[in-house]
Write a protein that binds this DNA or RNA. Structure first.
Lengths: 205, 205, 205, 205
DNA sequence: AATGAATGAGCATTCATTCAT
DNA sequence: CATGAATGAATGCTCATTCAT
């Protein structure tokens, strides 16, 4: 389905180096990080980037997919935990931990750059939806919170922290805690707007 | 100190038109909105942009300062309200309302591009700090929440909503409500990390 | 309809310099002449090329249109000459003279890069068609020759000469003469294939 | 003298496949056909192309040589025909038929990329010169036409036809007929320029 | 003061060619 | 020998910024 051929050893190493370098570069300079800088950071020639990823957008998509898949795996594991509240908190912790920097790209911002991204995102969203549903059933979180709510709030801790000039690397934990407290039934006040639909339907073939 | 000369009438009109056009353009297309488009939207020549703002970044800074000043005025007003909790909530509502779109960039992202920005930001932060202190004193919010916490969380509702493809214009209210519930004493769990310092001291000359 | 504004004096000078430089460069190195080289040859910056012609193709189109219009003017003049055979010969001479070098670009090769090109070409073709029709009526050329035939053969002398390493500048006259003799009734043998249609209809609005 | 070693069987097969693939690709997309596409079409790796032909230009030269040799063989055969006029016409027909598409580039355009090309071209030119001389002697063509004239005019039919958008595959026959009529004594008018010298002497070592 | 023409650094992308596997 | 991964020069084009009009 994806590339059938297993890739030569050195090529695989380069591909990984590129993904890592690109993730760092995108994290530091946003979407306008240049391909040349990414190549330099990965220690390869500019042309090599395009051998592996036909387009800058494809490179971005590959990073996004990688991240989302890794996160989905974590979520799948946690689906079988007994305590749904702890499971959801652990999931959000893993998500925030993935990058303590400005990973703004890894949600919708990457757009529907490729059907593969859409597919992967849909899968991840479904997993989160299940995690949230379980927590709701166990009354660990308030009944008016949906999966979409959590999906949207998930990145807020990292975002918020990105504005602190020399932030300690774990500062996001503070804001995850505050937001998570907002999800608990204890402090619940009626919500002034219905939740959005993020279209979790499976539109993939 | 800063503007030495009161600016001719037409020049002032141009300056305002430019600020408005730039704000719209940045809101629609993000930071990569082109100076040429801004000039066209303002109905002036490209050169005029640079007569008023030496640099694209200076233009951005001017917008940021405008916004922060307007918000500071709102905050100052609310400092005298009786109910500190309501006052803080109203302030956050005003902040989120200012733009439901992507000029969340108006905090640190504009960097310390000019001492004027720094000065204005410091002033705004101090106001917010007071609002939060009053709410804390009235036990309307939990005791472990600082001004810096609120400053950081303030933009999260807009950020979060920016990932919803065709978001209804008031959706941010939902997430402000959730986050605000997280600030209330009712659901408070111990916070895992001390609050950051945003250096509210007045470092300007 | 086209650019309504009359263009500043220096801008017009640059535009002309660019057209001339581009024509030379295209003539020497074919379509893959680089915009950078054209700019250098015209003595302007690279950006200036794109201010005047949004696209390399637009630049090419402008040249083509210029040439075709000039040629059309010659043809229009000759439509009123008494001796249609001489008129046609003079027209073909003017066409070949326009560039003794590889002007391969100035016919279909530029494709229908813009409706303006199409329009201009249609006009030129119609003029040629009239010239040919008159010559045919006067029995100066064979009856089985159409306007399309002449249009196609028109560039052959230049093409043919382009393969002579250090061709004398008037060598094309020799081949125009030979081909023109082929158009005369005297040596006519039946033609083995019907003439093509070049769609001389006026499809423009 | 040139190929020192008789080439292994599979290598020879690859070489032929490459020549065929390259000829097709050049015909379809012109000189800017990419080596990668040629390799893919031939079913070999890109590196293999360069093992056989040190340079893209060398590959082009090899094709040119192939074509010129094939055409020379046809010409040699026709040298013994009784009717020199028919022989010449048949030769030109064969030449035009070789490809009705855009490998008219196979004359000078390939330049003197290698001495081998020069040598082959010289041989072909000599053959054509003989064919023309015989026709001239038999008064089948006008006395002021030289071998060089025919060599140059030879590709005109293909060239001319290349500007007809969806040309029927045999359209070139029409223009060959017209040009050939121009070579006949019947319509001959004095030629305005002496014939060029194409240096048919054998300058190769 | 306002304009918009000119500039050139910077960008994503292509491709002939080289070289490790 | 064959492969295809790596390379980097070159290209068309954009855009913040400068400057002549």
């Amino acid at each position: 389905m994806t590339p059938p051929r297993p890739l030569r050893a050195d090529a695989a190493r380069n591909r990984d180096a590129l993904l890592a370098a690109a993730a760092d570069e995108f994290a530091e300079r946003g979407l306008e990080a240049s391909v040349a800088d990414i190549a330099r950071r990965a220690g390869v020639g500019k042309g090599t980037v395009f051998r592996h990823f036909a387009t800058k957008d494809d490179l971005l998509a590959a990073i996004v997919i990688d991240r989302m898949d890794a996160l989905d795996a974590v979520g799948q594991d946690l689906l079988t935990a007994d305590d749904a509240a702890t499971a959801l908190h652990e999931f959000l912790t893993a998500a925030a931990h993935q990058r303590q920097q400005r990973d703004l790209s890894f949600l919708q911002s990457a757009g529907d750059v490729s059907p593969e991204v859409t597919r992967t995102r849909t899968r991840l969203y479904a997993t989160i939806d299940h995690l949230v549903a379980r927590a709701r059933t166990q009354k660990a979180i308030r009944p008016d919170i949906t999966g979409a709510d959590v999906i949207l709030l998930m990145c807020a801790p990292n975002y918020v922290v990105s504005y602190v000039p020399e932030a300690p690397p774990d500062l996001w934990q503070r804001y995850l805690a505050i937001i998570f407290d907002g999800l608990r039934p204890a402090a619940a006040h009626p919500l002034p707007h219905p939740p959005p639909s993020l279209d979790l339907s499976d539109t993939a073939t």
